[in-house]
Write a protein that binds this DNA or RNA. Structure first.
Lengths: 224, 224
DNA sequence: CGCCGAGTTGAGAACTCTCAAATACAGTGG
DNA sequence: CCACTGTATTTGAGAGTTCTCAACTCGGCG
């Protein structure tokens, strides 16, 4: 997990992101001044549950898993952040310890923005506050979506859903953006259950070869 | 669902609430000017999934269930709001249709705040924006808590948790604030499963008579 | 006294998990 | 390009949990 310089690609990623895209250049520079960048290997920990977290993290590339652990050592993912997404605002604004751990789910580059700085900006700059509000609404909806899926759908239905929502409308195939392992976590399934769901879907026109998913009959998936 | 006047008790409830407590009186009055109040019976619908929602709702008394429905007619609760809580900000800020329905879970009094007004305030008044940010963080955490519980705990553990977190630290008993039915929904369980969980807990020192819960051995519950 | 809604209990079905074994793959060093 | 090693993924079998449906209890009410 060593320190890097912010490349111009990184800057571009930040500026394209949901959060920064709507902010003026000057605010953006202002935030960046107190930011640091680091390279993480898979399994590197950004912060741990119950720790104090003073920074806000931003995924420049790679993937970060947010997971909670139960007392018996089991753990459950509650969110997955990929390139261009921001995490860990909640702890800061609620002045609480982290309620989950953040772990790189693959080789990643992470920007660490100064929390105090951001908090100050949120309190004084309308645009920042606005962007934050939207970001939080978005995040809330994501989590709610996951909860509703867990409660309403079977494993196979959740997987069908995922495929439908990740395959471009004008295409019949796409590549999984991460290991099946990780997907299982995101969907709240044991890896074996994911595997079985895929093989059920095979029988209704889904081909899975490695990370390549092909859909032969979109309509069959929607029926699930 | 007929229109009421805002009583002084209602005003007090609003001012005590997480959201309004930190705002100055004048802002508070400003919001109230464009608010209306209505009395709801159990099962009255505040808004339905996929509808446009332009207002923000506030529970003055009673209980509101936020639920999503699956295509097969099943439905899952994703949140439960009681006295002093606010709902439906997300749709407004994301400019989306509602992703869930809101239904009174018992006789309730609901304030309906003008969404445009609130949105305007959020964009111009730092205090309002700040309050909103905290509110959203809080809500996000609640949802995340639910998701994590669903994924990490068994039915019995979730119920034990609920009991522990609702029984005052200095007491050995408390009353459920709503029907078991509703509790089952909140915990993501079928009513039968909740019932069975209670009877499992009975064997480790929990007495349930109607809505009265007594804990004889707090420690036994924590062990679950 | 019979009805009704809430809650409980029983039984079997449906899902998902866990553990173990078999494969498939990817990266490494020849 | 190949063998080798460690990590993913798949599959099988059995166990565990929760759901569904149906019957039954309980307390309140007309």
């Amino acid at each position: 997990m060593n320190t890097l310089q912010l490349t111009s690609t990184d800057r571009a990623t930040l500026m394209r992101s949901r959060f920064f895209a709507r902010l003026p250049q000057s605010t953006f520079e202002d935030v960046l001044n107190s930011a640091s960048v680091s390279a993480c290997e898979e399994r590197d920990v950004l912060f741990r549950q119950d720790e104090d977290v003073d920074d806000v993290f931003f995924v420049l590339s790679g993937l970060v898993r947010l997971c909670r652990m139960g007392k018996d050592g089991r753990e459950a993912d509650v969110a997955l952040f990929s390139e261009g997404e921001m995490l860990a605002e909640t702890a800061m604004f609620l002045r609480q310890r982290a309620t989950a751990s953040a772990v790189a789910a693959k080789k990643s580059v992470i920007a660490r923005l100064n929390g105090g700085k951001l908090q100050h900006l949120a309190a004084t700059d309308h645009e920042v506050a606005q962007a934050l509000i939207e970001h939080l609404c978005y995040r809330g909806k994501m989590t709610e979506d996951l909860l509703a899926e867990d409660r309403l759908l079977t494993a196979t239905q959740r997987v069908a859903n995922f495929i439908l929502s990740h395959c471009p409308k004008d295409s019949t195939s796409f590549r999984l953006p991460f290991q099946k392992n990780i997907l299982a976590g995101k969907l709240g399934l044991a890896p074996e259950a994911l595997s079985r769901a895929f093989s059920t879907l095979r029988q209704s026109g889904v081909t899975v070869r490695g990370r390549l998913i092909e859909i032969h009959d979109r309509h069959a998936l929607e029926r699930f």
